[in-house]
């Protein structure tokens, strides 16, 4: 990840930088395409779900191509199913490679999860057990992805609602070992950390500190929904349908203390608000980023 040293954090020129800028970005939604091109909002980058653009042509490609001319891009996959028992879908990998070739994103990321079983696609990010068997399998899959795409990928920590009795290591140790073996980077989803830590009674800062933080290439922030399990305890659901919760903003501030400024995405996939609302949330993240940017620059000077 040494390339990040070359990134100009204020640059909006995608062609000049091979990593995401140290700024806040938002998810690109089709209902905002025209407004983005007309108003060119002050966001550091856009992120798209890879699978939405695995179509032959039409407006999605028309607008993404134009928006890409003005902004850095992160391509975030939700369908590769890296945690699946079955081998990776090579056709899907081919489609992904074509998309990356076409749009030259600064970042490609996927999830520590599975979403397919054989031919079936389940459209959700399902949990894996944390043991030696799954570690070997997920590592092989990440190797295959990185070899096929000829670039390192970022792997996102999951939000989960159950644990497996067959797990032999904790999630942070599992992720650390994956990153050590495969050389992939980490997409640290701060909301997922919060959600999983509430759901499983883990210590959030302990979890974060156990991760290889040098490998973090991007942060995600999102809103969660809230439920209760049968014992009456809080069960948080990673729903991407609400603003970032105050508790997650506080955890984000602590993460920035540890990491310094890091590219940060505001994720919203359901109940999509106006572009202004998303941009305002990104600006809230940018204010936090700015707090950590200045002292570091002075220290370097």
């Amino acid at each position: 990840m040494t390339l990040s040293l070359l990134a100009d954090e204020n640059s909006g020129a995608p062609a000049l930088s091979s990593t995401l800028p140290l700024r806040a970005g938002i998810g690109l939604k089709s209902q905002h395409y025209r407004q983005i091109l007309e108003s060119q909002p002050q966001v550091g980058f856009f992120e798209v779900h890879a699978e939405n653009y695995m179509v032959a042509g039409g407006p999605f490609h028309h607008y993404l191509q134009r928006i890409r001319e003005h902004y850095p891009l992160s391509i975030h996959g939700v369908g590769l199913s890296i945690g699946a028992e079955h081998p990776l879908d090579e056709q899907h990998l081919d489609r992904l490679a074509a998309l990356i070739e076409r749009y030259q994103p600064q970042s490609f990321s996927e999830h520590l999860a599975w979403s397919s079983h054989g031919e079936l696609f389940l459209n959700d990010l399902l949990p894996v057990a944390y043991n030696a068997t799954t570690l070997t399998r997920v590592c092989e899959h990440i190797d295959r992805v990185q070899n096929r795409l000829q670039r390192p990928m970022l792997l996102e920590n999951p939000s989960t609602y159950v644990e497996y009795a067959s797990s032999t290591m904790d999630e942070a140790s599992f992720i650390s070992e994956l990153i050590r073996r495969s050389g992939c980077g980490l997409l640290l989803d701060v909301n997922n950390v919060y959600v999983s830590c509430i759901n499983h009674n883990w210590d959030a800062l302990g979890y974060i500190n156990a991760l290889p933080l040098h490998a973090v290439g991007e942060l995600h922030l999102a809103g969660f929904a809230e439920d209760r399990d049968s014992a009456g305890d809080r069960l948080l659901i990673d729903a991407h349908g609400a603003p970032v919760d105050d508790a997650v903003w506080r955890l984000y501030a602590q993460v920035l203390q540890l990491l310094g400024p890091t590219p940060t995405l505001i994720e919203r996939d359901n109940d999509i608000p106006s572009l202004e609302v998303l941009v305002a949330e990104a600006q809230q993240a940018e204010r936090q980023l700015a707090l950590h940017r200045t002292p570091q620059r002075q220290a370097l000077a």
Binding site: A129, E163, A165, S166, N199, N201, D229, S230, A231, D233
Partner: peptide, 13 residues
Amino acid sequence: ELSSWNGADPSSR
């Protein structure tokens, strides 16, 4: 083989 920290019925999760 699913479990929960607080003994909640895993099916509720």
